[in-house]
Amino acid sequence: MFVINCPFCGERDQSEFSSGGEAHIIRPKQPTELSDDQWAEYLFMRKNIKGVQFERWNHAHGCRKWFNMIRDTSNDKIHAIYKMGEKPPIV
């Protein structure tokens, strides 16, 4: 169980958080203009990387804020945590 440094609350146990999957998938501004394939790409396709991955996390049992995390899925090392809308730091 990791310790996650919530950008709003500080360090908390992982049990307070829920994972929201891959980060930086932006909802298309004009979905109606997309082909089925393009929409499916947004809707269904997710990477599942063994290694460094960009993820969304939510402090579900805390401040309920969403934020982003860069995590290595092979060893659970958290490289960076940054707020929604911020550019991912280079790690």
Binding site: N58, R64, K65, W66, M84
Partner: peptide, 13 residues
């Protein structure tokens, strides 16, 4: 509520 918060915070801030 979680879903609505998700959209508000991440897609439509």
């Amino acid at each position: 509520l979680n879903k609505l918060e998700d959209y508000l915070q991440t897609e439509w801030p």
